[in-house]
Design a protein around this nucleic acid. Structure first.
Length: 476
DNA sequence: ATGTGC
């Protein structure tokens, strides 16, 4: 990125002032090094977002930001409905409520290693993965609507989990305000057999080791010790979320003119929060959030079954579940005034600081666990929300590394089989339905997640707690 | 990300 137009506001904070068509400044959080590597498109896209009606405070880009559809991935933007604020399908992303959850197992690495191969095989057997993968669950139209209304709470009621899991999920596992009627029949049809499936791309289920602890006090509160084995699941709302995105993008493109919104480009398609289309999208998107929460809950149930077979009596306890593709109604202090705004986080994680009332009681003092998924064969991180992130970026932080090259480029450079062998030599067992998928997800096809974590930590967006290293990776 | 796109 050409940083000559930016003003430095701190060691990890850069600003493009409001002006031209920008109603608010663009704020990029990054080290100088990450900023220089960042795609110029991030600044263009964040600047376009800054021109949308009703935007509050600033158009933000996180240290892991990269070029996305309309809004940058790693973008955060809040809109006030009273000031003509908008909601945008491209501002949420196609994989609605894609996110990460991490489960504690109580096992140590030495317990796991003798059974790692057999556990990898078992997990791969019970977790359907890959493009278009189908699970064992079939939802009738009535059940589909109940799932879209109830999220992970619905899944637990069906027997796929425990009530205490819900305490450790945003919105207690059920996003209010979902409207199944706003979800197209086609979207529902695509999801009929996809509950409890992992999908493809960078979605995974990993068995990981707590490899380093940076904040012993918080780690203890999270139940994390060095050498502990944890399970992380990264996936989203599958075909349903994707179809909702597709459907509403189309609707928002054709409606923008009728709402008198000047779009700097078509991909920024949006609708006023107070318009019928805006409300309809919010209802559908919230249903998509519930679909993702239910999906991760069912995958958790499947992982528990696999673990029970290999390690009888072992209990998988949910540490936390975060979403990183959402638009949520929240109260934030803006210019000294508490306001009700709609915060788009696209490839950005909510990161509530210590004491926030929305946190479960036993985590409130510590702050929200912020789960940062790595890519296959690389580190993942657990961070915690800070006191400063509310003021900095509506309590938001990074979500992961982000790609460094295209899928196509990656498949030219590597063969899946070789990647699997190299990872096995490093003690990482990969199970995947697609060798090409493995090549596309090669560790070096991604940016170094450690650098973006360091930048988020230094910027004050979230604080480092622990690093996780993969041992088993189940992929699509 | 996606019943992948060129």
């Amino acid at each position: 990125m050409d940083k000559s137009v930016l003003q430095r506001r701190g060691p990890c904070k850069w600003e493009l002032p409001a002006g031209e068509s920008r109603r608010v400044p663009v704020v990029i959080f990054a080290t100088e090094e990450l900023l220089e590597e960042m795609d110029q498109k991030v600044l263009e896209q964040a600047s376009n977002v800054a021109s949308l009606p009703g935007i509050q405070k600033a158009s933000f880009a996180m240290p892991d930001a990269h070029w996305g559809y309309g809004f940058p991935i790693g973008g955060v933007a809040a809109f006030d409905p009273e000031e003509g604020g908008v909601v945008s399908a491209g501002g949420v992303g196609f994989d609605i409520s894609c996110g990460v959850r991490t489960l504690l197992t109580g096992l140590k690495k030495k317990d796991l290693l003798p059974k790692a191969e057999i556990l990898a095989d078992k997990l791969f057997e019970v977790i359907p993965a890959g493009v278009g993968s189908r699970g064992k669950i079939r939802l009738s139209p009535k059940e589909m609507d109940q799932m879209l209304l109830g999220g992970a709470r619905w899944a637990v009621e069906q027997g796929w989990g425990r009530p205490e899991d819900l305490e450790r999920i945003e919105e207690k596992g059920c996003m209010p305000g979902a409207c199944p009627d706003a979800v197209s029949p086609e979207a529902k049809k695509r999801q009929e057999a996809e509950m409890g499936t992992l999908g493809s791309g960078n979605h995974y289920l990993e068995v990981q080791e707590v490899a380093e602890i940076y904040d012993p006090e918080i780690a203890k509160k999270f139940g994390l010790e060095l050498g502990d084995i944890v399970v992380s699941i990264h996936c989203g709302s599958r075909g349903l979320g994707h179809q909702i995105g597709t459907d509403f993008l189309k609707k928002m493109v054709s409606a923008a003119a009728s709402y008198g919104i000047q779009l700097p480009e078509r991909e920024l398609a949006c609708a006023p929060l107070q318009s019928p289309l805006g409300r309809e999208y919010l209802g559908a998107m919230r249903a998509g959030i519930n679909c993702a929460l239910a999906n991760r809950q069912i995958l958790t149930h499947l992982a528990r079954k696999a673990f029970e077979e290999i390690f009888p009596g072992v209990e998988l306890v949910l540490l936390y579940d975060v979403s990183h593709n959402t638009c949520k109604e929240e109260v934030h202090e803006i210019n000294g005034k508490k306001k009700r705004v709609f915060v788009h986080r696209k490839g950005a994680t909510r990161a509530l600081g210590p004491g926030h009332p929305d946190l479960p009681k036993d985590l409130r003092e510590a702050g929200q666990p912020v789960l940062i998924g790595g890519s296959m064969g690389t580190h993942s991180y657990i961070l915690v929300g800070t006191d400063t992130s509310e003021e900095l970026a509506f309590s938001s932080a990074i979500h992961g590394a982000g790609r460094a090259m295209s899928r196509h480029q990656a498949t030219k450079l590597w063969k899946g089989r070789e990647i699997i062998r190299e990872l096995a030599e490093r003690g990482i067992l990969v199970r995947s339905v697609s060798e090409r998928g493995v090549a596309e997800e090669a560790p070096k096809a991604y940016k170094d997640v450690s650098l973006v974590v360091e930048a988020a930590h230094r910027a004050g967006l979230a604080k480092k707690v622990a690093r996780l290293d993969p041992l088993i990776c189940v992929k699509g």
